[in-house]
Design a protein around this nucleic acid. Structure first.
Length: 568
RNA sequence: CGGGGUGUAGCGCAGUUUGGUAGCGCAUCUGGUUUGGGACCAGAGGGUCGCGGGUUCAAAUCCUGCCACCCCGACCA
Protein backbone atom coordinates (compact mmCIF):
# COMPACT_ATOMS: atom_id res chain seq x y z
CA UNK A 1 0.00 0.00 0.00
CA UNK A 2 1.31 3.38 -1.02
CA UNK A 3 -0.40 6.00 1.03
CA UNK A 4 -0.18 8.72 -1.59
CA UNK A 5 -2.78 6.98 -3.69
CA UNK A 6 -4.79 5.06 -1.11
CA UNK A 7 -8.04 5.77 0.66
CA UNK A 8 -6.42 6.84 3.90
CA UNK A 9 -7.26 9.56 6.36
CA UNK A 10 -7.00 10.26 10.05
CA UNK A 11 -8.77 12.75 12.27
CA UNK A 12 -6.93 14.93 14.69
CA UNK A 13 -9.80 15.47 17.03
CA UNK A 14 -11.96 12.96 18.81
CA UNK A 15 -15.31 12.02 17.39
CA UNK A 16 -18.20 13.71 19.14
CA UNK A 17 -20.51 10.74 18.75
CA UNK A 18 -18.18 8.09 20.16
CA UNK A 19 -18.19 7.25 23.84
CA UNK A 20 -15.42 4.66 24.16
CA UNK A 21 -11.66 4.71 23.67
CA UNK A 22 -11.89 2.02 21.04
CA UNK A 23 -14.70 3.77 19.18
CA UNK A 24 -12.77 7.02 19.16
CA UNK A 25 -9.47 5.51 18.12
CA UNK A 26 -11.02 3.40 15.38
CA UNK A 27 -12.88 6.41 14.00
CA UNK A 28 -9.90 8.73 14.31
CA UNK A 29 -7.67 6.30 12.51
CA UNK A 30 -10.12 6.11 9.63
CA UNK A 31 -10.99 2.45 10.16
CA UNK A 32 -14.71 2.72 10.87
CA UNK A 33 -17.42 5.36 10.85
CA UNK A 34 -20.83 5.31 12.45
CA UNK A 35 -23.49 5.48 9.79
CA UNK A 36 -26.51 5.44 12.09
CA UNK A 37 -27.19 4.36 15.64
CA UNK A 38 -25.60 0.97 16.08
CA UNK A 39 -24.48 0.54 12.47
CA UNK A 40 -20.98 1.15 11.18
CA UNK A 41 -19.15 1.49 7.92
CA UNK A 42 -16.04 -0.67 7.85
CA UNK A 43 -13.45 1.32 5.90
CA UNK A 44 -10.42 -0.16 4.11
CA UNK A 45 -8.00 -0.07 7.01
CA UNK A 46 -10.58 -1.40 9.46
CA UNK A 47 -11.60 -4.15 7.09
CA UNK A 48 -7.98 -5.32 6.88
CA UNK A 49 -7.97 -5.96 10.60
CA UNK A 50 -11.37 -7.55 10.58
CA UNK A 51 -10.23 -9.91 7.82
CA UNK A 52 -7.16 -10.90 9.83
CA UNK A 53 -9.34 -11.67 12.83
CA UNK A 54 -11.70 -13.66 10.64
CA UNK A 55 -8.78 -15.55 9.11
CA UNK A 56 -7.58 -16.62 12.55
CA UNK A 57 -11.08 -17.76 13.47
CA UNK A 58 -11.58 -19.54 10.16
CA UNK A 59 -8.24 -21.26 10.53
CA UNK A 60 -9.13 -22.62 13.97
CA UNK A 61 -12.60 -23.66 12.86
CA UNK A 62 -11.24 -25.57 9.90
CA UNK A 63 -8.60 -27.20 12.06
CA UNK A 64 -11.35 -28.88 14.08
CA UNK A 65 -13.18 -29.96 10.94
CA UNK A 66 -15.92 -27.36 10.83
CA UNK A 67 -17.08 -26.40 7.33
CA UNK A 68 -17.99 -22.91 6.21
CA UNK A 69 -21.38 -21.97 4.77
CA UNK A 70 -23.44 -18.79 4.62
CA UNK A 71 -27.08 -18.40 5.45
CA UNK A 72 -29.45 -15.63 4.44
CA UNK A 73 -30.12 -12.83 6.89
CA UNK A 74 -33.62 -12.44 5.47
CA UNK A 75 -35.74 -15.18 6.96
CA UNK A 76 -39.48 -15.86 6.98
CA UNK A 77 -40.87 -15.17 10.41
CA UNK A 78 -42.45 -18.65 10.48
CA UNK A 79 -39.02 -20.19 11.01
CA UNK A 80 -38.76 -18.54 14.40
CA UNK A 81 -42.38 -19.15 15.26
CA UNK A 82 -41.80 -22.84 14.62
CA UNK A 83 -38.87 -22.94 17.05
CA UNK A 84 -40.76 -20.88 19.60
CA UNK A 85 -38.22 -18.10 19.59
CA UNK A 86 -40.26 -15.37 17.87
CA UNK A 87 -41.79 -14.55 21.22
CA UNK A 88 -38.55 -14.96 23.12
CA UNK A 89 -36.72 -12.43 20.98
CA UNK A 90 -39.67 -10.09 20.99
CA UNK A 91 -38.84 -6.50 20.07
CA UNK A 92 -35.16 -7.18 19.67
CA UNK A 93 -35.87 -8.82 16.34
CA UNK A 94 -36.07 -6.60 13.25
CA UNK A 95 -39.16 -7.56 11.35
CA UNK A 96 -40.44 -6.51 7.97
CA UNK A 97 -42.96 -7.42 5.28
CA UNK A 98 -42.40 -8.27 1.66
CA UNK A 99 -44.52 -6.83 -1.15
CA UNK A 100 -47.10 -9.57 -0.71
CA UNK A 101 -47.41 -8.61 2.94
CA UNK A 102 -45.67 -11.75 4.15
CA UNK A 103 -43.76 -11.33 7.41
CA UNK A 104 -39.99 -11.67 7.48
CA UNK A 105 -37.30 -11.07 10.09
CA UNK A 106 -33.61 -10.27 9.91
CA UNK A 107 -31.83 -13.13 11.63
CA UNK A 108 -30.50 -12.47 15.13
CA UNK A 109 -28.84 -15.91 15.26
CA UNK A 110 -29.27 -18.97 13.12
CA UNK A 111 -29.92 -22.20 15.02
CA UNK A 112 -33.10 -22.81 13.01
CA UNK A 113 -31.56 -22.53 9.55
CA UNK A 114 -28.56 -24.57 10.53
CA UNK A 115 -30.86 -27.27 11.82
CA UNK A 116 -32.58 -27.16 8.44
CA UNK A 117 -29.21 -27.44 6.68
CA UNK A 118 -28.22 -30.37 8.88
CA UNK A 119 -31.43 -32.09 7.93
CA UNK A 120 -30.29 -32.22 4.32
CA UNK A 121 -27.39 -34.42 5.29
CA UNK A 122 -28.02 -36.17 8.59
CA UNK A 123 -30.20 -39.26 8.41
CA UNK A 124 -28.29 -41.96 10.20
CA UNK A 125 -26.17 -42.46 13.30
CA UNK A 126 -23.32 -43.02 10.84
CA UNK A 127 -23.47 -39.37 9.75
CA UNK A 128 -22.06 -37.85 12.94
CA UNK A 129 -20.41 -35.66 14.01
CA UNK A 130 -21.15 -32.64 11.82
CA UNK A 131 -19.95 -29.10 12.34
CA UNK A 132 -20.79 -26.03 10.25
CA UNK A 133 -20.01 -22.37 10.65
CA UNK A 134 -20.46 -19.03 8.93
CA UNK A 135 -19.48 -15.38 9.11
CA UNK A 136 -22.59 -13.36 8.71
CA UNK A 137 -24.29 -10.13 9.66
CA UNK A 138 -26.74 -10.46 12.49
CA UNK A 139 -29.45 -7.99 13.30
CA UNK A 140 -30.68 -7.21 16.78
CA UNK A 141 -32.76 -4.20 17.62
CA UNK A 142 -30.75 -3.24 20.69
CA UNK A 143 -32.51 -0.60 22.77
CA UNK A 144 -29.28 1.23 23.34
CA UNK A 145 -26.28 0.65 21.12
CA UNK A 146 -23.05 2.01 22.59
CA UNK A 147 -19.29 1.78 22.87
CA UNK A 148 -18.47 1.84 19.20
CA UNK A 149 -18.34 -1.67 17.77
CA UNK A 150 -19.11 -3.27 21.09
CA UNK A 151 -22.89 -3.00 21.15
CA UNK A 152 -24.44 -2.49 17.75
CA UNK A 153 -27.58 -3.46 15.89
CA UNK A 154 -26.01 -4.94 12.80
CA UNK A 155 -22.86 -6.90 13.46
CA UNK A 156 -20.75 -9.69 12.11
CA UNK A 157 -20.87 -12.95 13.95
CA UNK A 158 -19.03 -16.13 13.42
CA UNK A 159 -21.57 -18.70 14.46
CA UNK A 160 -20.80 -22.38 14.50
CA UNK A 161 -23.08 -25.32 15.14
CA UNK A 162 -22.33 -28.90 16.01
CA UNK A 163 -24.59 -31.89 15.51
CA UNK A 164 -24.16 -35.14 17.41
CA UNK A 165 -26.05 -38.32 18.01
CA UNK A 166 -26.02 -38.13 21.79
CA UNK A 167 -24.88 -36.09 24.78
CA UNK A 168 -21.58 -37.88 24.82
CA UNK A 169 -20.91 -36.78 21.27
CA UNK A 170 -21.97 -33.24 22.16
CA UNK A 171 -19.49 -33.19 25.03
CA UNK A 172 -16.70 -34.15 22.65
CA UNK A 173 -17.69 -31.61 20.00
CA UNK A 174 -18.09 -28.94 22.65
CA UNK A 175 -14.70 -29.68 24.08
CA UNK A 176 -13.09 -29.39 20.64
CA UNK A 177 -14.81 -26.11 20.00
CA UNK A 178 -13.91 -24.87 23.45
CA UNK A 179 -10.23 -25.52 22.84
CA UNK A 180 -10.44 -23.84 19.42
CA UNK A 181 -11.94 -20.80 21.15
CA UNK A 182 -9.04 -20.66 23.57
CA UNK A 183 -6.63 -20.81 20.63
CA UNK A 184 -8.49 -18.02 18.87
CA UNK A 185 -8.56 -15.60 21.78
CA UNK A 186 -4.94 -16.29 22.61
CA UNK A 187 -3.94 -15.62 19.01
CA UNK A 188 -5.94 -12.40 19.12
CA UNK A 189 -3.89 -11.37 22.12
CA UNK A 190 -6.91 -10.80 24.33
CA UNK A 191 -6.82 -10.86 28.10
CA UNK A 192 -9.92 -12.89 28.85
CA UNK A 193 -11.65 -15.30 31.21
CA UNK A 194 -14.30 -17.95 30.68
CA UNK A 195 -17.39 -17.72 32.86
CA UNK A 196 -20.50 -19.80 33.33
CA UNK A 197 -23.49 -17.88 32.02
CA UNK A 198 -27.21 -17.89 31.56
CA UNK A 199 -28.62 -19.80 28.60
CA UNK A 200 -31.23 -17.09 28.06
CA UNK A 201 -33.28 -17.17 24.87
CA UNK A 202 -30.99 -19.86 23.48
CA UNK A 203 -32.17 -22.39 26.00
CA UNK A 204 -30.24 -25.59 26.43
CA UNK A 205 -28.05 -27.25 28.96
CA UNK A 206 -24.97 -25.11 29.44
CA UNK A 207 -23.64 -21.74 28.44
CA UNK A 208 -20.15 -20.40 28.87
CA UNK A 209 -18.90 -16.97 27.88
CA UNK A 210 -15.45 -15.81 26.82
CA UNK A 211 -15.10 -12.39 28.40
CA UNK A 212 -12.40 -9.90 27.45
CA UNK A 213 -11.51 -7.97 30.58
CA UNK A 214 -12.21 -4.27 30.37
CA UNK A 215 -13.53 -1.55 32.65
CA UNK A 216 -16.14 -0.64 30.03
CA UNK A 217 -17.39 -4.23 29.87
CA UNK A 218 -21.12 -4.50 30.32
CA UNK A 219 -21.02 -7.81 32.12
CA UNK A 220 -19.99 -8.21 35.72
CA UNK A 221 -17.94 -11.32 36.32
CA UNK A 222 -17.85 -13.00 39.68
CA UNK A 223 -14.46 -14.51 40.39
CA UNK A 224 -12.99 -16.63 43.18
CA UNK A 225 -9.34 -16.96 42.34
CA UNK A 226 -8.16 -19.88 44.48
CA UNK A 227 -10.77 -22.31 43.25
CA UNK A 228 -10.90 -20.92 39.71
CA UNK A 229 -14.57 -20.09 40.09
CA UNK A 230 -15.85 -17.70 37.43
CA UNK A 231 -19.47 -16.89 36.69
CA UNK A 232 -21.47 -14.14 35.12
CA UNK A 233 -23.22 -12.15 37.86
CA UNK A 234 -26.53 -13.29 36.35
CA UNK A 235 -25.94 -16.87 37.41
CA UNK A 236 -23.61 -16.53 40.40
CA UNK A 237 -25.24 -18.48 43.21
CA UNK A 238 -25.37 -17.26 46.80
CA UNK A 239 -25.06 -19.29 49.95
CA UNK A 240 -26.35 -18.34 53.38
CA UNK A 241 -24.02 -15.83 55.00
CA UNK A 242 -24.30 -17.33 58.49
CA UNK A 243 -26.57 -18.85 61.13
CA UNK A 244 -30.09 -17.59 61.87
CA UNK A 245 -30.21 -14.81 64.43
CA UNK A 246 -31.04 -16.02 67.95
CA UNK A 247 -32.48 -12.71 69.17
CA UNK A 248 -35.76 -13.12 71.04
CA UNK A 249 -38.90 -12.37 69.06
CA UNK A 250 -40.38 -8.91 69.72
CA UNK A 251 -43.94 -7.69 69.20
CA UNK A 252 -44.79 -6.26 65.79
CA UNK A 253 -45.36 -2.52 65.91
CA UNK A 254 -46.72 -0.11 63.34
CA UNK A 255 -44.63 3.06 62.97
CA UNK A 256 -45.26 6.22 60.98
CA UNK A 257 -42.55 6.93 58.45
CA UNK A 258 -43.74 10.12 56.75
CA UNK A 259 -42.39 10.55 53.24
CA UNK A 260 -39.86 7.80 53.75
CA UNK A 261 -40.31 5.41 50.84
CA UNK A 262 -36.82 4.31 49.96
CA UNK A 263 -34.64 2.04 52.07
CA UNK A 264 -32.19 4.92 52.57
CA UNK A 265 -34.91 7.23 53.84
CA UNK A 266 -36.53 4.75 56.18
CA UNK A 267 -33.16 3.58 57.41
CA UNK A 268 -32.13 7.16 58.19
CA UNK A 269 -35.51 7.92 59.74
CA UNK A 270 -35.54 4.92 62.06
CA UNK A 271 -31.80 4.99 62.70
CA UNK A 272 -31.42 1.31 61.75
CA UNK A 273 -28.93 -0.20 59.27
CA UNK A 274 -30.17 -1.25 55.83
CA UNK A 275 -29.55 -4.91 56.67
CA UNK A 276 -32.37 -4.84 59.22
CA UNK A 277 -34.91 -4.02 56.51
CA UNK A 278 -36.70 -6.34 54.19
CA UNK A 279 -37.85 -4.78 50.95
CA UNK A 280 -40.60 -6.17 48.80
CA UNK A 281 -40.46 -5.67 45.05
CA UNK A 282 -43.46 -6.06 42.78
CA UNK A 283 -42.93 -7.58 39.36
CA UNK A 284 -45.04 -8.71 36.45
CA UNK A 285 -44.12 -12.21 35.35
CA UNK A 286 -45.73 -12.97 31.98
CA UNK A 287 -48.21 -10.27 32.97
CA UNK A 288 -49.12 -11.83 36.31
CA UNK A 289 -48.07 -10.06 39.51
CA UNK A 290 -45.44 -11.60 41.74
CA UNK A 291 -43.52 -10.20 44.70
CA UNK A 292 -39.98 -10.72 45.96
CA UNK A 293 -38.74 -9.95 49.46
CA UNK A 294 -35.04 -9.32 49.99
CA UNK A 295 -32.78 -7.88 52.64
CA UNK A 296 -32.65 -4.09 52.32
CA UNK A 297 -29.10 -3.93 51.04
CA UNK A 298 -29.55 -6.71 48.48
CA UNK A 299 -30.70 -6.57 44.86
CA UNK A 300 -32.96 -8.97 43.04
CA UNK A 301 -31.22 -11.11 40.44
CA UNK A 302 -33.80 -11.09 37.67
CA UNK A 303 -32.22 -14.00 35.84
CA UNK A 304 -32.59 -16.21 38.89
CA UNK A 305 -36.15 -15.00 39.41
CA UNK A 306 -37.04 -15.65 35.81
CA UNK A 307 -35.73 -19.20 35.97
CA UNK A 308 -37.34 -19.93 39.30
CA UNK A 309 -40.74 -18.86 37.99
CA UNK A 310 -40.23 -20.55 34.63
CA UNK A 311 -41.63 -17.54 32.78
CA UNK A 312 -40.37 -15.78 29.66
CA UNK A 313 -40.86 -12.16 30.64
CA UNK A 314 -40.24 -10.40 33.93
CA UNK A 315 -40.52 -6.68 34.42
CA UNK A 316 -40.90 -4.37 37.38
CA UNK A 317 -44.48 -3.39 38.02
CA UNK A 318 -45.24 0.22 37.17
CA UNK A 319 -46.43 2.59 39.92
CA UNK A 320 -50.14 2.13 39.09
CA UNK A 321 -49.79 -1.65 39.27
CA UNK A 322 -47.92 -1.42 42.58
CA UNK A 323 -50.68 0.69 44.02
CA UNK A 324 -53.33 -1.71 42.72
CA UNK A 325 -51.64 -4.79 44.21
CA UNK A 326 -50.45 -3.35 47.53
CA UNK A 327 -52.93 -0.56 48.17
CA UNK A 328 -50.06 1.85 48.77
CA UNK A 329 -47.81 3.96 46.58
CA UNK A 330 -44.37 2.71 45.62
CA UNK A 331 -42.10 2.48 48.65
CA UNK A 332 -44.41 0.91 51.19
CA UNK A 333 -44.95 -2.60 49.87
CA UNK A 334 -44.60 -5.37 52.44
CA UNK A 335 -45.27 -9.08 52.76
CA UNK A 336 -48.03 -9.00 55.39
CA UNK A 337 -51.48 -9.55 53.87
CA UNK A 338 -50.03 -9.17 50.40
CA UNK A 339 -52.46 -10.60 47.87
CA UNK A 340 -49.71 -11.52 45.45
CA UNK A 341 -47.60 -14.71 45.34
CA UNK A 342 -44.46 -13.99 47.35
CA UNK A 343 -40.96 -15.41 47.03
CA UNK A 344 -38.52 -14.70 49.83
CA UNK A 345 -34.77 -14.60 49.44
CA UNK A 346 -33.01 -17.20 51.61
CA UNK A 347 -30.94 -14.54 53.33
CA UNK A 348 -34.11 -13.12 54.91
CA UNK A 349 -34.49 -16.37 56.84
CA UNK A 350 -31.47 -15.41 58.97
CA UNK A 351 -33.02 -12.15 60.13
CA UNK A 352 -34.90 -11.48 63.33
CA UNK A 353 -37.17 -8.52 64.09
CA UNK A 354 -36.84 -6.71 60.81
CA UNK A 355 -38.61 -3.72 59.27
CA UNK A 356 -41.05 -4.02 56.36
CA UNK A 357 -43.50 -1.82 54.46
CA UNK A 358 -47.07 -1.92 55.75
CA UNK A 359 -48.82 -1.64 52.36
CA UNK A 360 -50.03 1.74 53.60
CA UNK A 361 -48.66 5.14 52.68
CA UNK A 362 -46.07 6.46 55.16
CA UNK A 363 -46.32 3.41 57.44
CA UNK A 364 -43.88 0.57 58.18
CA UNK A 365 -43.93 -2.39 60.57
CA UNK A 366 -41.02 -3.10 62.88
CA UNK A 367 -40.11 -6.32 64.69
CA UNK A 368 -41.46 -8.50 61.90
CA UNK A 369 -40.39 -12.13 61.46
CA UNK A 370 -40.75 -14.78 58.80
CA UNK A 371 -43.53 -16.47 60.82
CA UNK A 372 -45.67 -13.34 60.54
CA UNK A 373 -46.56 -13.65 56.85
CA UNK A 374 -47.25 -16.19 54.17
CA UNK A 375 -44.97 -16.90 51.28
CA UNK A 376 -44.80 -19.34 48.42
CA UNK A 377 -41.14 -20.19 48.57
CA UNK A 378 -37.76 -19.36 50.04
CA UNK A 379 -35.01 -19.36 47.45
CA UNK A 380 -31.75 -17.83 46.29
CA UNK A 381 -32.96 -14.87 44.26
CA UNK A 382 -30.49 -12.14 45.08
CA UNK A 383 -27.49 -10.76 43.31
CA UNK A 384 -24.25 -11.75 44.95
CA UNK A 385 -22.24 -8.86 46.40
CA UNK A 386 -18.51 -8.33 46.15
CA UNK A 387 -16.91 -9.93 49.22
CA UNK A 388 -19.70 -12.48 49.76
CA UNK A 389 -18.66 -16.10 50.21
CA UNK A 390 -18.43 -17.93 46.89
CA UNK A 391 -21.12 -20.55 46.40
CA UNK A 392 -18.43 -23.23 46.41
CA UNK A 393 -17.29 -22.08 49.84
CA UNK A 394 -13.71 -21.49 48.71
CA UNK A 395 -13.51 -17.83 49.69
CA UNK A 396 -14.93 -14.39 49.09
CA UNK A 397 -15.67 -13.37 45.52
CA UNK A 398 -14.52 -10.27 43.70
CA UNK A 399 -15.97 -8.58 40.63
CA UNK A 400 -14.41 -7.63 37.33
CA UNK A 401 -15.98 -6.34 34.15
CA UNK A 402 -15.89 -8.11 30.83
CA UNK A 403 -16.84 -7.68 27.19
CA UNK A 404 -18.47 -10.84 25.92
CA UNK A 405 -16.46 -11.77 22.84
CA UNK A 406 -17.54 -15.38 22.56
CA UNK A 407 -20.24 -17.69 23.81
CA UNK A 408 -20.66 -21.43 23.69
CA UNK A 409 -23.88 -23.35 24.26
CA UNK A 410 -24.75 -26.96 24.77
CA UNK A 411 -28.20 -26.80 23.27
CA UNK A 412 -29.31 -30.42 23.55
CA UNK A 413 -32.38 -31.34 21.51
CA UNK A 414 -34.37 -28.11 21.83
CA UNK A 415 -33.97 -27.02 18.22
CA UNK A 416 -33.78 -30.43 16.65
CA UNK A 417 -37.14 -31.34 18.16
CA UNK A 418 -38.66 -28.00 17.13
CA UNK A 419 -37.24 -28.24 13.61
CA UNK A 420 -37.86 -31.98 13.25
CA UNK A 421 -34.19 -32.90 12.96
CA UNK A 422 -34.02 -36.64 13.77
CA UNK A 423 -31.84 -39.57 12.76
CA UNK A 424 -32.08 -43.37 12.79
CA UNK A 425 -30.16 -45.09 15.51
CA UNK A 426 -28.40 -48.46 15.12
CA UNK A 427 -31.32 -50.04 16.94
CA UNK A 428 -33.75 -48.57 14.39
CA UNK A 429 -34.97 -45.94 16.78
CA UNK A 430 -35.75 -42.38 15.64
CA UNK A 431 -33.87 -39.91 17.87
CA UNK A 432 -33.43 -36.13 17.95
CA UNK A 433 -30.02 -34.74 16.96
CA UNK A 434 -28.06 -33.12 19.77
CA UNK A 435 -26.87 -29.62 18.96
CA UNK A 436 -24.35 -27.11 20.20
CA UNK A 437 -23.92 -23.51 19.09
CA UNK A 438 -20.89 -21.27 19.35
CA UNK A 439 -20.59 -17.56 18.60
CA UNK A 440 -17.78 -15.05 18.27
CA UNK A 441 -18.12 -11.38 17.38
CA UNK A 442 -15.06 -10.56 15.25
CA UNK A 443 -15.75 -6.82 15.16
CA UNK A 444 -16.44 -6.81 18.86
CA UNK A 445 -13.12 -8.59 19.33
CA UNK A 446 -11.53 -5.84 17.29
CA UNK A 447 -12.95 -3.21 19.65
CA UNK A 448 -11.98 -5.24 22.73
CA UNK A 449 -8.41 -5.56 21.46
CA UNK A 450 -8.24 -1.79 21.08
CA UNK A 451 -9.71 -1.26 24.54
CA UNK A 452 -6.98 -3.46 25.97
CA UNK A 453 -4.14 -2.22 23.77
CA UNK A 454 -3.81 1.50 23.27
CA UNK A 455 -1.93 4.46 24.65
CA UNK A 456 -2.30 8.23 24.35
CA UNK A 457 -0.81 8.14 20.84
CA UNK A 458 -2.96 5.46 19.31
CA UNK A 459 -3.71 1.78 18.96
CA UNK A 460 -1.14 -0.92 19.78
CA UNK A 461 -2.19 -3.82 17.60
CA UNK A 462 -0.52 -7.18 18.15
CA UNK A 463 1.94 -7.73 15.34
CA UNK A 464 -0.17 -10.32 13.56
CA UNK A 465 -3.22 -8.07 13.45
CA UNK A 466 -1.67 -4.69 12.68
CA UNK A 467 -3.22 -3.30 9.49
CA UNK A 468 0.24 -2.06 8.64
CA UNK A 469 3.03 -4.26 9.91
CA UNK A 470 5.86 -2.22 8.43
CA UNK A 471 5.48 1.45 7.57
CA UNK A 472 8.26 2.92 5.48
CA UNK A 473 8.44 6.61 6.18
CA UNK A 474 10.17 8.97 3.82
CA UNK A 475 11.56 11.71 6.05
CA UNK A 476 11.92 14.40 3.43
CA UNK A 477 9.87 14.14 0.29
CA UNK A 478 12.06 16.70 -1.47
CA UNK A 479 15.11 14.50 -1.04
CA UNK A 480 15.27 12.41 -4.19
CA UNK A 481 17.70 9.91 -2.74
CA UNK A 482 15.45 9.19 0.24
CA UNK A 483 12.47 8.75 -2.04
CA UNK A 484 14.36 6.43 -4.33
CA UNK A 485 15.77 4.32 -1.49
CA UNK A 486 12.34 4.07 0.15
CA UNK A 487 10.68 3.02 -3.11
CA UNK A 488 13.29 0.33 -3.63
CA UNK A 489 12.95 -0.90 -0.08
CA UNK A 490 9.19 -1.01 -0.48
CA UNK A 491 9.49 -3.12 -3.61
CA UNK A 492 12.03 -5.45 -2.09
CA UNK A 493 9.89 -6.07 0.99
CA UNK A 494 6.84 -7.13 -1.03
CA UNK A 495 8.14 -10.69 -1.00
CA UNK A 496 8.08 -10.90 2.80
CA UNK A 497 4.35 -11.50 2.92
CA UNK A 498 4.05 -8.77 5.52
CA UNK A 499 1.71 -5.82 5.20
CA UNK A 500 4.05 -3.10 4.03
CA UNK A 501 3.00 0.49 3.65
CA UNK A 502 4.99 3.25 2.01
CA UNK A 503 4.18 6.64 3.46
CA UNK A 504 5.02 8.71 0.41
CA UNK A 505 2.54 11.47 1.19
CA UNK A 506 3.81 14.98 0.79
CA UNK A 507 3.73 15.54 4.54
CA UNK A 508 6.29 16.41 7.14
CA UNK A 509 7.78 13.59 9.12
CA UNK A 510 5.92 14.54 12.30
CA UNK A 511 2.57 14.03 10.63
CA UNK A 512 3.65 10.63 9.37
CA UNK A 513 4.84 9.52 12.80
CA UNK A 514 1.63 10.63 14.44
CA UNK A 515 -0.52 8.89 11.85
CA UNK A 516 1.42 5.62 11.92
CA UNK A 517 1.26 5.56 15.70
CA UNK A 518 -2.44 6.34 15.67
CA UNK A 519 -3.34 3.48 13.35
CA UNK A 520 -0.94 1.14 15.14
CA UNK A 521 1.62 0.40 12.42
CA UNK A 522 3.74 -2.24 14.15
CA UNK A 523 7.18 -1.19 12.82
CA UNK A 524 8.23 2.12 11.37
CA UNK A 525 11.23 2.25 9.08
CA UNK A 526 12.49 5.77 8.57
CA UNK A 527 14.37 6.50 5.37
CA UNK A 528 16.09 9.73 6.24
CA UNK A 529 19.48 11.24 6.74
CA UNK A 530 21.19 7.87 6.79
CA UNK A 531 19.93 7.01 3.33
CA UNK A 532 23.10 8.27 1.69
CA UNK A 533 25.12 5.75 3.68
CA UNK A 534 22.58 3.01 3.02
CA UNK A 535 21.18 3.08 6.57
CA UNK A 536 17.63 3.27 7.83
CA UNK A 537 16.06 3.42 11.29
CA UNK A 538 13.60 0.88 12.63
CA UNK A 539 11.25 1.89 15.46
CA UNK A 540 8.69 -0.06 17.43
CA UNK A 541 6.59 1.13 20.33
CA UNK A 542 8.14 -0.23 23.49
CA UNK A 543 11.54 -1.03 21.92
CA UNK A 544 14.74 0.90 21.36
CA UNK A 545 15.38 2.46 17.98
CA UNK A 546 17.62 0.35 15.72
CA UNK A 547 19.84 1.63 12.94
CA UNK A 548 20.20 -0.94 10.18
CA UNK A 549 22.00 -1.20 6.87
CA UNK A 550 19.42 -1.59 4.09
CA UNK A 551 20.55 -5.11 3.25
CA UNK A 552 19.75 -6.31 6.78
CA UNK A 553 16.20 -5.01 6.92
CA UNK A 554 14.50 -8.05 5.51
CA UNK A 555 16.30 -10.45 7.82
CA UNK A 556 15.50 -8.29 10.83
CA UNK A 557 11.81 -8.19 9.90
CA UNK A 558 11.75 -11.98 9.64
CA UNK A 559 13.09 -12.12 13.18
CA UNK A 560 10.62 -9.60 14.50
CA UNK A 561 7.63 -11.24 12.87
CA UNK A 562 8.95 -14.74 13.51
CA UNK A 563 8.57 -15.69 9.89
CA UNK A 564 10.88 -18.07 8.07
CA UNK A 565 11.82 -17.28 4.49
CA UNK A 566 10.79 -20.82 3.58
CA UNK A 567 7.20 -20.51 4.59
CA UNK A 568 6.81 -17.87 1.90
C1' C B 1 -39.62 3.81 27.17
C1' G B 2 -38.29 7.79 31.27
C1' G B 3 -34.77 11.95 32.55
C1' G B 4 -30.97 15.28 30.60
C1' G B 5 -28.21 17.31 26.43
C1' U B 6 -26.72 18.41 21.37
C1' G B 7 -27.70 19.46 16.05
C1' U B 8 -24.06 25.78 12.44
C1' A B 9 -18.46 23.95 6.18
C1' G B 10 -15.37 17.22 5.61
C1' C B 11 -13.85 17.16 11.34
C1' G B 12 -13.97 19.92 16.17
C1' C B 13 -16.45 24.25 17.85
C1' A B 14 -18.18 29.77 18.81
C1' G B 15 -22.42 32.77 17.69
C1' U B 16 -28.69 31.80 20.18
C1' U B 17 -29.47 35.07 26.51
C1' U B 18 -30.50 40.76 23.83
C1' G B 19 -33.53 38.95 16.04
C1' G B 20 -30.23 42.77 11.59
C1' U B 21 -28.66 38.16 6.76
C1' A B 22 -22.69 33.54 9.60
C1' G B 23 -17.50 33.00 12.12
C1' C B 24 -12.93 30.37 14.34
C1' G B 25 -9.31 26.13 14.44
C1' C B 26 -8.07 21.76 11.66
C1' A B 27 -8.63 19.75 6.75
C1' U B 28 -8.90 21.22 1.19
C1' C B 29 -6.98 24.34 -3.24
C1' U B 30 -3.09 28.16 -5.24
C1' G B 31 1.73 30.61 -4.64
C1' G B 32 6.05 31.05 -1.68
C1' U B 33 9.31 29.68 2.43
C1' U B 34 10.41 25.29 5.32
C1' U B 35 11.85 19.81 5.91
C1' G B 36 13.64 14.41 11.77
C1' G B 37 7.82 14.60 15.84
C1' G B 38 0.71 17.09 14.01
C1' A B 39 5.38 23.87 10.01
C1' C B 40 5.02 29.23 8.51
C1' C B 41 3.33 33.46 5.36
C1' A B 42 -0.15 35.25 1.70
C1' G B 43 -4.52 34.22 -0.88
C1' A B 44 -8.93 31.09 -2.28
C1' G B 45 -13.05 27.68 -2.33
C1' G B 46 -16.70 25.36 0.61
C1' G B 47 -22.81 26.42 4.70
C1' U B 48 -30.99 25.00 2.39
C1' C B 49 -27.40 27.12 10.40
C1' G B 50 -31.20 19.03 11.34
C1' C B 51 -36.41 19.26 8.83
C1' G B 52 -41.39 21.53 8.55
C1' G B 53 -44.80 25.30 10.14
C1' G B 54 -45.48 30.07 12.70
C1' U B 55 -44.29 35.29 14.65
C1' U B 56 -41.63 39.53 12.34
C1' C B 57 -39.88 44.58 7.76
C1' A B 58 -36.08 40.92 9.10
C1' A B 59 -35.00 34.34 12.23
C1' A B 60 -28.99 30.24 13.31
C1' U B 61 -31.30 33.37 17.23
C1' C B 62 -38.21 33.78 19.38
C1' C B 63 -42.73 30.14 19.30
C1' U B 64 -44.33 25.26 17.64
C1' G B 65 -44.35 20.18 15.61
C1' C B 66 -41.17 16.45 13.96
C1' C B 67 -36.39 13.98 13.11
C1' A B 68 -31.43 12.55 14.16
C1' C B 69 -27.46 11.90 17.48
C1' C B 70 -25.18 11.74 22.56
C1' C B 71 -25.30 10.84 28.01
C1' C B 72 -27.78 8.53 32.52
C1' G B 73 -31.41 4.95 33.62
C1' A B 74 -34.76 0.88 32.13
C1' C B 75 -33.87 -3.32 28.74
C1' C B 76 -30.37 -6.98 26.68
C1' A B 77 -28.76 -13.08 23.74
Amino acid sequence: MKLSNSYFFTLREKARDEDSSSGNLLVRSGMIKKSSTGAYMMLPLGLRILRKIEDIIRDEMEKIGSQEVTMPALIPEDVYIESGRREGFGDSMFSLKDRYDRPYVLGPTHEELFAAAAKMYIHSYKDFPVSLFQFQNKFRDEPRPRFGLIRVREFIMKDAYTFDKDLDGLDKSYEKMFRAYHNIFKRLGLDYVVVRADTGVMGGLLSEEFQALSPIGEDILVIEKNSGYAANLEVAGCILSGEPSQEPYLEIEEVDTPNAGTIEEVSAFLGKPKQSFVKTLLYMADNKPVAFSLRGDHELNETKALKLLGVTELRMADPEEVERFTGAPVGFAGPIDLKVPLIVDQEVSLLRNFVIGANKKDVHFINVNLKDFEYKQIADIREICEGDMCENGAGPVHFIRGIEVGNTFKLGDKYSKAMDLYYMDASNERLPVIMGSYGIGPARCMAAIVEQNHNENGILWPKDLAPVQVAIIIANMKDELQTKVAEELYSSLQSTGLDICLDDRDERIGVKFKDMELIGAYCRIVVGRGASEGKVELERTGFDKEILPLEDVKERLYQIFEKGKNEL
